[in-house]
C-alpha cells in the first residue's frame, strides 16, 4: 500500500528467539486490517544484504499513549535466519524500509452470508501473530472467539497476555506438556468440534503447514469454513514476482495463487495441501 522509511521504536525480547518489534508509522497503522502484513527491510541501507525484505504479519496496532490514535505497528519476529537475526538486533531509532499494509486479510463474519456465533482461532507458535486483531474485530461483532494455542514447549506460547486481557477462552497445549494439555493443538480443537456439532462455527488458523493442514481437514470433516494465514518466501510482496505462490485446486486456469496478494489469508479449500510452498 505505502512504501515508507520507518523508525524502530522498541525491540522486546520475548524469549526462545521471539521478539516484539514496534515500528513507528501512523500512516501505515491507520490502514491495517486484521491478517495483513508488512514487507520490512532487515537492515538500515536499502542496497545492503540481505537484499529482499521479509514479510511479517501485523500483530497489533501501536497506539499513542495519550490520544489513543494509531502510531505504528507491532510485529512478532522469530529468529529463523540471516534476515530476522539482523532485524531483532536492530536498535530503537534505526530506520528501515517498510512496505504495507499488504495483502488480503481475514473475512469477518459481518462480510459473510451465513451466521457465525463462534470462531475457533488456532495458533501454532508465532502463528499467533495475526489472531489478536482478528479476536478484537470478532468481539466487536459479538462473535465469541476461542483461542487454541499450541507450541513445542511453554516458551513458544508467546504474547498470551493481550488475549487474556480480552477475556476470551484460551486453551493451550504443548508437545512436552510444560503448559496446558500435552500434545498437538489440533487435539483439543477436535474435541471441541466433537462436543459442539454446530454449523455456526468458523475456523481461523495460522501456524506450521502441517498444523494448518490438520485444521483444514477438521473443518472439512465437520463441514465448516476455515481460513488460513499462509507463509511463503517472498520476492517483492506486491504481486509482481510470482515467487510466493501456493498451489490451488479450485482456481480454474489459475493453479497457483500469490500469498502476497491473493493471501496471506485464504479459505483453506483454495489450498492444495499436498504441495508445501516453503
Amino acid at each position: 500500500m505505502l512504501d515508507k522509511k520507518v523508525k524502530i521504536k522498541a525491540v522486546r525480547d520475548l524469549g526462545a528467539g521471539n521478539h516484539l518489534i514496534v515500528i513507528a508509522s501512523p500512516e501505515q497503522a491507520r490502514l491495517v486490517r486484521p491478517g495483513q502484513f508488512v514487507m520490512l527491510k532487515c537492515v538500515e541501507n536499502t542496497g545492503e544484504n540481505p537484499l529482499l525484505r521479509r514479510p511479517f504479519t501485523i500483530f497489533n496496532i501501536h497506539r499513542n499513549a495519550r490520544s489513543g490514535k494509531p502510531a505504528g505497528v507491532e510485529l512478532l519476529v522469530k529468529e529463523v535466519g540471516v534476515g530476522t537475526r539482523r532485524l531483532v538486533s536492530a536498535r530503537p531509532g534505526q530506520t528501515l524500509d517498510c512496505l504495507g499494509p499488504q495483502g488480503h486479510g481475514f473475512q469477518l463474519p459481518s462480510d459473510l452470508p451465513s451466521r457465525v456465533t463462534t470462531a475457533c482461532l488456532v495458533a501454532g507458535g508465532v502463528g499467533i501473530a495475526p489472531l489478536l486483531l482478528l479476536a478484537e474485530s470478532l468481539l466487536a461483532l459479538r462473535v465469541k472467539p476461542i483461542l487454541f494455542y499450541g507450541g513445542g514447549t511453554v516458551a513458544d506460547l508467546v504474547l498470551r497476555e493481550p488475549f487474556e486481557r480480552l477475556g476470551i477462552d484460551i486453551i493451550t497445549s504443548t508437545e512436552d506438556g510444560s503448559h496446558g494439555e500435552r500434545g498437538l493443538v489440533t487435539e483439543p480443537l477436535a474435541q471441541f468440534l466433537r462436543i459442539h456439532p454446530r454449523k455456526d462455527i468458523r475456523l481461523y488458523a495460522c501456524g506450521p503447514w502441517g498444523m494448518m493442514r490438520a485444521v483444514h481437514e477438521l473443518a472439512v470433516g465437520h463441514d465448516l469454513q476455515c481460513e488460513v494465514s499462509l507463509e511463503a518466501r517472498m520476492g517483492c510482496g506486491l504481486g509482481a514476482c510470482l515467487g510466493c505462490v501456493v498451489a490451488s485446486p479450485a482456481a480454474e486456469g489459475r493453479p497457483y495463487l500469490r500469498v502476497c496478494q491473493d493471501g496471506p489469508v485464504m479459505n483453506s479449500r483454495l489450498v492444495r495441501w499436498d504441495i508445501e510452498p516453503v
Binding site: L51, C241, L242, R254
Partner: peptide, 25 residues
C-alpha cells in the same frame, strides 16, 4: 495461452542475489 508456472518453492535469496524458478507463469 496462459502458463501456470512451476510448483513452489520458487524463490530463494542467496548472497547478494536471489534464485528464481517461476516457470513463465
Amino acid at each position: 495461452k496462459p502458463i501456470p508456472g512451476n510448483p513452489p518453492p520458487r524463490v530463494y535469496e542467496t548472497a547478494s542475489g536471489m534464485l528464481n524458478a517461476i516457470g513463465w507463469q
